[in-house]
Computed example of a mutant assay.
Amino acid sequence: MSQPPPNVAYARLRAEAQLLGAPLPPLLADAEHLAQTVLLGAHGRRRAGMGDEFWQYRSAEVGDSARMIDWRRSARSDENYVREKEWQGAQSVLMWVDRSASMRFSSLKSGVSKADRTALLAMAMAVLLMRAGERVALASLGTPPRIGNLQLLRISQGLTDPADEDYGVPEIRGMLPHSRALFVSDFMGDIDALAGQLTKAADRGVKGAILQVLDPAEEAFPYDGRTVFESMGGTVRHETLKAADLRGRYIERLAERKDRLSGLARSTGWRFETHHTDASAQSALLWLYGALEQVR
């Protein structure tokens, strides 16, 4: 493979050095603080591979070298056995975080939007996963999973870039077979598109977690009288004189959407949860980290 010209290599190295030397972006600093609330210990992967702890014996197969045979165990049987150890190498996690216009909505006095909360949670998850030796990628960047401070900075910048569309659809480009993934959105858009992407991910042996993030007003529908409903991107608009009359139908349809999201997760071996922006970010982070551990 040819090497880049010295001036190009130097420019690239200088750019990366400047990025690393810059003050931590506020999002990354907040995520580091949130990540401190989760205690990380050594955790095995329960997969065959490189590691220090014994996992299981298996019958020797064609291609196994003589040094892989456990001769003491094999001496007690007519078969040769290989002693497998627990896999503790880095695994890959792809994060898709919805940055569409819908995510910019907030009814809270604090001004915390769905976009703010999802970015914080995703960034904190990246910090935690990398500390555990995982490689992480942000789907919107289109780059392979990596580890390290430079990757954290790339992800933090990617999480602050807004998208143009009203509602987001999960991206699975760069998703490695048998890896893990995280989808974070309000999932108020086309649920069939989500189902299609989730099915494609499952076909690749990918498992993960789906976190639906909603504003409390989207859950309670606290509107009455004359109300104009308009999507954050301005493509959908509805005006009514009796908003309260819509509450029952809205809550019913929201419940149906949650049920379908939950069903999609169950059928593909994923985990599903709903989080509200007025609730503790710590509780959502603990659920996310635990969910990815459970789908390992």
Rank of each mutant, 00 (worst) to 15 (best):
P6T: 09
Q56D: 09
R117N: 04
F187G: 06
A202P: 05
L176P: 07
V82G: 11
T160V: 05
L24I: 03
Y10R: 14
E84R: 00
S231A: 11
D259A: 14
V8W: 05
V8S: 10
G111T: 03
L264R: 04
E53V: 08
S185I: 01
P25A: 07
Q18M: 08
L108R: 14
L141M: 11
M175D: 09
A60N: 06
H178K: 11
E86P: 13
A29W: 02
S156E: 01
K109G: 12
G89K: 06
P222D: 07
P170D: 06
L120A: 10
T118A: 14
G41L: 01
A35S: 12
L138S: 11
A279D: 15
L152A: 05
M125I: 06
L28Y: 08
M130F: 06
V213L: 07
T268L: 06
A29R: 10
R146K: 13
M95K: 05
A124P: 11
Y57K: 10
R58D: 08
V62C: 07
K258S: 08
A243S: 13
W71M: 12
R83H: 02
R247Y: 04
R257P: 15
R154Q: 13
L141V: 03
G133Y: 03
T143S: 06
L128M: 01
F105I: 08
A119N: 13
